[in-house]
């Protein structure tokens, strides 16, 4: 843990100094919202459509962040420096997925209000609490798989291509649960003329998708933990 913290601190210092990853991710996400607006020609989105646009934009931003994750380690000898130290290899996995998780979270602090502004889903404010829980869980899946895929891709010649094409199919289960779950959150049913309410209830329909997403997080974390060490050896 001490070592993972050291790596994470190093990564955050570099990110704060260069501002290479997070701003790019944020700009990309907001631009994607705008692109979707023109593609769909809708002034406001709701339900499954809103959830889908949001989920896909986040996934693409995650891909962007994933590509950069290990580049400094590869190009500036970070892997060798780390491997020379008498420490547990898993620390690298912990630190990198924590970094990606943080990047995604910071990005969403910008993306969530931006989505409210541009897509204006009805009942957005009421659904925000549930949305945040979903976001935390989907960030975990994106971060874990992103770290794994990035560690694979960084040693290939065409890493900017290999990373996304491996990563996207692996992320589909997380995307499915996130999109359907938040789709339920953002669904509206008309109570009176012009009056809308988000869906609420004791048996929240989004609940089971939260569970699916959480299970996917746990599963991928165990899988990545089991195989990650092999990616650091030569």
């Amino acid at each position: 843990m001490r070592v993972a913290w050291a790596i994470l601190r190093k990564d955050l210092t570099v990110e704060l100094r260069t501002l290479e990853t997070v701003p790019a991710m944020a700009i990309f996400t907001v631009a994607t919202f705008v692109i979707f607006h023109f593609g769909l020609q809708r002034d406001s989105l709701s339900g499954q459509l809103a959830a889908g646009v949001f989920a896909v934009s986040l996934l693409f931003a995650a891909v962007l962040g994933t590509n950069r994750l290990f580049v400094a380690e590869r190009e500036q000898g970070g892997f060798d420096g780390f491997l020379l130290a008498p420490v547990d290899r898993t620390a690298m996995f912990l630190a990198k997925s924590a970094a990606l998780f943080l990047y995604l979270t910071v990005l969403e602090i910008i993306a969530v209000p931006a989505f409210g502004l541009f897509a204006a889903p009805p009942g957005y404010g009421g659904a925000l609490g549930g949305l945040i829980v979903f976001l935390l869980l989907v960030n975990l899946a994106f971060a874990i798989l992103g770290t794994l895929v990035s560690a694979i891709a960084v040693h290939t010649r065409a890493r900017d291509l290999i990373g996304p094409i491996i990563g996207l199919p692996l992320q589909i289960p997380a995307l499915i649960s996130f999109a359907i779950g938040t789709g339920k959150l953002l669904a509206v049913h008309t109570v009176g003329p012009g009056e809308v309410l988000p869906v609420h209830g004791a048996h929240h329909p989004a609940g089971e998708w939260l569970l699916v997403l959480a299970l996917y997080d746990v599963f991928t974390a165990l899988l990545a933990y089991a195989v990650f060490d092999f990616l650091l050896e030569e």
Partner: peptide
């Protein structure tokens, strides 16, 4: 993935990790 890793040993290891996942 295999094609873009030149070192045969690394290619085998990474392909194996991919296969397991």
């Amino acid at each position: 993935l295999r094609f873009s890793i030149e070192d045969p040993e690394r290619q085998a290891t990474y392909a194996a990790v991919f296969a397991v996942v």
